Amino acid sequence: MLVAERRALILAAVIDRGAVRAADLAQELGVSVMTIRRDLDQLEIAGELSKVHGGAISTAHLDSVRGLEPLPSLKAERQPEAKRAIAAAAVEFIEDGMTVAIGAGTTTLELAKLLRGRQVSVVTNSMAIFALLTDPGETILNPAAVQLTGGQRTPSDALVGPLANAALERYRTDLAFLGVHGIDPAAGMTTPNLGEAETNRKLLDTARTTVVLADHTKYAEIGAHLYATFARVDRVVTDAAIRPDHRRALAAVVDLTVAEGMNR
C-alpha cells in the first residue's frame, strides 16, 4: 500500500469516526503503531486532524482533546446504545431500600433514567441527574429522596470543590456509581478535571461498594488526574463492543461485568 493511500484511509477513518486509536489503525492497516504515529504526525502538520493521547481526532472534535472536558450535549451523542446497555446491566445491582451515590456523566444519567418507580434514595453531584430525578413531569423518584451537593459547576455539569466534598463527607451509601473519562489497567480511572477527580474520590468514600461505568471507547484513555486505582473500585461495567484483549486486561485487575448482547 502506498503511503498516500494509507494516509487517505487514516483520514477517512478519522472523519467517519470522529476519533481513532493508533493501535486500532495499525491492526486494521497491517502496519506498525510507529508507522501510524508518523502518518498522524504528517496529517496533523497538514492540518487534517489533531493528535491526542493514543490516537487522533478530527478537527471538528477538538473538544475531546486530552485535558479538556467535552460538553455534555456532545458526550451524549457518543456511544448511546453502549451507554444504555451499561446502565441496564448496572441497575441490576440496585435493590429497593438502598441509598446510592451517582456521579456526573452521560452513562450515569442513563442509569438514573432506569430508577423510575424504585424505592431508593440518591445522592448526586450531577445537576442533570438531580433535574431528571426531581422533575414533576417525570415522577421518577420522590424528590425528597434525592439530594444534590453544592459546589462549583464543571463543563460536564458536575458540582465539585470544597462545598461538594464537605457535603459528601456526611453521607453513607450502599453503592456508588461513577463514570470515567479514561480507564487504563496501569493508570486507573482518570478525568481531565482536577476538581472532579477530588469529588469523585469523595463519592467513592461514601459507599460500601463502588462501581465504575465505562463504555469500550474509554479503554486506554488517560486523563490528567487520577481519581481511583483499581484497588479502590469493586466492579467495572462495560459494553460488549470491548475488544477481547481489553476485556482480558480489565478482568485481570477488577471484577468485570460486560453487558453482553445488549448494545446493537
Results as ranks from 00 to 15, higher is better:
Met1Lys: 10
Leu2Gly: 10
Glu5Met: 11
Glu5Asn: 10
Ala8Phe: 07
Ile10Asn: 06
Ala12Pro: 00
Ala13Gly: 03
Ala13Lys: 12
Val14Leu: 13
Ile15Asp: 10
Ile15Val: 15
Ile15Gln: 14
Asp16Thr: 03
Ala19Leu: 04
Ala19Asn: 02
Ala23Tyr: 02
Glu28Gly: 05
Glu28Leu: 13
Glu28Lys: 13
Ser32Lys: 04
Val33Tyr: 02
Ile36Tyr: 03
Asp41Ala: 12
Gln42Ser: 14
Glu44Ala: 14
Ile45Val: 15
Ile45Ala: 15
Glu48Gly: 01
Glu48Asp: 14
Glu48Tyr: 00
Leu49Lys: 03
Leu49Tyr: 02
Leu49Thr: 04
Val52Gln: 05
His53Leu: 11
Ile57His: 05
Ser58Ala: 15
Thr59Ala: 09
Thr59Tyr: 03
Thr59Glu: 13
Leu62Gly: 04
Ser64Gly: 01
Val65Cys: 09
Leu71Ala: 15
Leu71Val: 06
Pro72Leu: 10
Ser73Thr: 12
Leu74Asp: 09
Glu77Leu: 15
Glu77His: 02
Arg78Met: 05
Arg78Phe: 04
Arg84Phe: 00
Ala88Trp: 00
Ala88His: 06
Ala89Cys: 05
Ala90Trp: 03
Ala101Asp: 08
Ile102Met: 13
Gly105Met: 01
Gly105Gln: 01
Thr106Gly: 10
Leu109His: 14
Leu109Tyr: 15
Leu109Met: 06
Glu110Cys: 09
Leu111Ala: 08
Ala112Cys: 05
Lys113Glu: 14
Lys113Asp: 06
Lys113Pro: 00
Gln119Pro: 01
Gln119Cys: 07
Val120Asp: 06
Ser121Gly: 11
Ser121Lys: 14
Val123Gly: 06
Thr124Gly: 09
Ser126Leu: 02
Met127Arg: 13
Ala131Asn: 13
Ala131Met: 09
Thr134Cys: 07
Thr134Asn: 05
Thr134Ala: 06
Gly137Arg: 13
Gly137Phe: 08
Gly137Asp: 09
Glu138Gly: 06
Glu138Asn: 10
Glu138Lys: 11
Ile140Gly: 04
Leu141Gln: 07
Asn142Ile: 00
Gln147Met: 11
Leu148Thr: 11
Gly150Glu: 14
Gly151Asp: 12
Ser156Thr: 02
Leu159Ile: 08
Gly161Arg: 04
Leu163Ala: 14
Glu169Met: 13
Arg172Cys: 11
Asp174Leu: 01
Leu175Ile: 13
Val180Leu: 03
Pro185Lys: 01
Pro185Val: 00
Thr191Tyr: 09
Pro192His: 11
Asn193Cys: 08
Gly195Gln: 05
Gly195Phe: 01
Glu198Gly: 02
Glu198Thr: 03
Lys202Tyr: 10
Leu203Asn: 06
Leu204Asn: 10
Val212Phe: 12
Leu213Gly: 08
Tyr219Glu: 07
Glu221Gly: 04
Glu221Phe: 11
Ile222Met: 07
Ile222Glu: 12
Gly223Arg: 02
His225Gln: 12
Leu226Trp: 05
Phe230Val: 06
Ala231Asp: 15
Val233Thr: 14
Asp234Gln: 11
Val236Met: 12
Val236Pro: 00
Thr238Leu: 08
Asp239Arg: 04
Ala241Ser: 10
Ile242Ser: 08
Asp245Met: 11
Arg247Tyr: 09
Asp255Lys: 01
Asp255Gly: 00
Glu260Pro: 04
Asn263Pro: 00
